[in-house]
Design a protein around this nucleic acid. Structure first.
Length: 304
DNA sequence: CCGTTTAGCGAGGTTACCTCA
DNA sequence: CATGAGGTAACCTCGCTAAAC
């Protein structure tokens, strides 16, 4: 099962050292041949069967292992087209492609393997960018809300003080003592107290999170200006045009779809955002209250 | 049926070659 | 010309699966 390294196979050793010939003849340095690679690539690859082969002019002329060659643009184009159709390669399609392209089936298989790896790398980069911009937007919203809150609180205090002064004046005009309040004056106190309390209190979980009105407290309103979307079901914080991001709730990807799908799906789904931030019908209903309490306890959500 | 062997494939990681700035 | 970086073909290892025995 192990790869059969022939003496003159220039494949690397376990530590990446080259097996060089005759003191490291540069001619054969790294000459990983694309010739004679048998399907499967784990059986013997017929490079030089004996040292004598190397000394023959004919071999040099005709059988010198090819240096690694880039595929031609035409070959790459056809492979790309095929990859677009399906990023996995069935044996039949592999043979067909190899025949069309004049390549070894093994080369086609290797190209698809590498292509999937490249696709995955790019996809991860795209996902990272998306997540970062979402995070930045949310952070900006959060900062903005904190400022608003600060401003409103100052206003409440200021207006309350003015009202109290007016009440004192009214009481004086009626000849009442300062500790005696004019009729209805306690209403002002109650109102201002309630207002400040509202500014102090952390928002209810159902206000912060996606709700029936279609959005979180953060994302509602200004969030929309940043292209952020919490849709009516609260499934995703990703923009609507984000291609095929899996629903966060129950968004467990199938085995077949393990992030390497050709569908352009994100690698991130249920691991990115806490599940409790998304509605999930009955489960959400059952845990809503508890989750809200935990949120309030754990998050420094309402910071002055 | 059940365990073992074999072969193929995919993911993840690595190496070495090639190209280009 | 030398060199370092980036892209990529080819490879290795490991795990999994299915077919054959």
């Amino acid at each position: 099962m192990d790869s059969g390294h022939l003496i003159f196979d220039s494949s690397t050793t376990q530590h990446g050292q080259m097996l060089l010939l005759g003191g490291g003849n540069p001619i054969f340095r790294g000459a990983r041949s694309v010739l004679g690679i048998e399907e499967g690539g784990r059986s013997k690859r017929p490079f030089f069967t004996s040292p004598d082969d190397l000394l023959e002019e004919v071999y040099y002329d005709e059988q010198l292992p090819e240096k690694k060659r880039r595929l031609t643009p035409e070959q790459v184009h056809l492979l790309e087209v095929s990859f677009e159709e399906e990023n996995k390669l069935e044996p039949e399609r592999k043979s067909e492609l190899a025949r069309k392209l004049g390549l070894q089936p093994r080369q086609v298989a290797v190209w698809f393997q590498n292509r999937r790896a490249r696709w995955k790398t790019k996809q991860l980069e795209r996902d990272f960018d998306r997540l970062k911009s979402s995070y930045d937007s949310l952070l900006a919203d959060h900062d903005s809300l904190l400022k608003d809150n600060h401003h409103l609180r100052a206003q409440v205090i200021s207006l309350t003080e003015k009202l109290q002064a007016k009440e004192a004046e009214a009481a004086a005009a009626l000849g009442l003592k300062p500790e005696e309040k004019a009729p209805g004056s306690n209403l002002t106190e109650q109102t201002s107290t309630a207002t400040v309390a509202a500014l102090d209190a952390p928002p209810k979980a159902e206000d912060r999170l996606s709700s029936g009105t279609g959005g979180s407290a953060v994302v509602d309103g200004e969030g929309a200006h940043h292209g952020l979307v919490v849709d009516s079901s609260g499934d995703s914080y990703f923009p609507e045009d984000y291609p095929c991001i899996a629903p966060v709730d129950g968004g467990v990807q199938s085995e077949e779809d393990d992030g390497v799908s050709d569908e352009g799906c994100s690698y991130y789904a249920d691991t990115v955002f806490p599940a409790e931030h998304h509605h999930d019908g009955q489960q959400d209903h059952n845990h809503h209250h508890q989750a809200a309490e935990e949120d309030e306890a754990q998050l420094d959500w309402w910071v002055w």
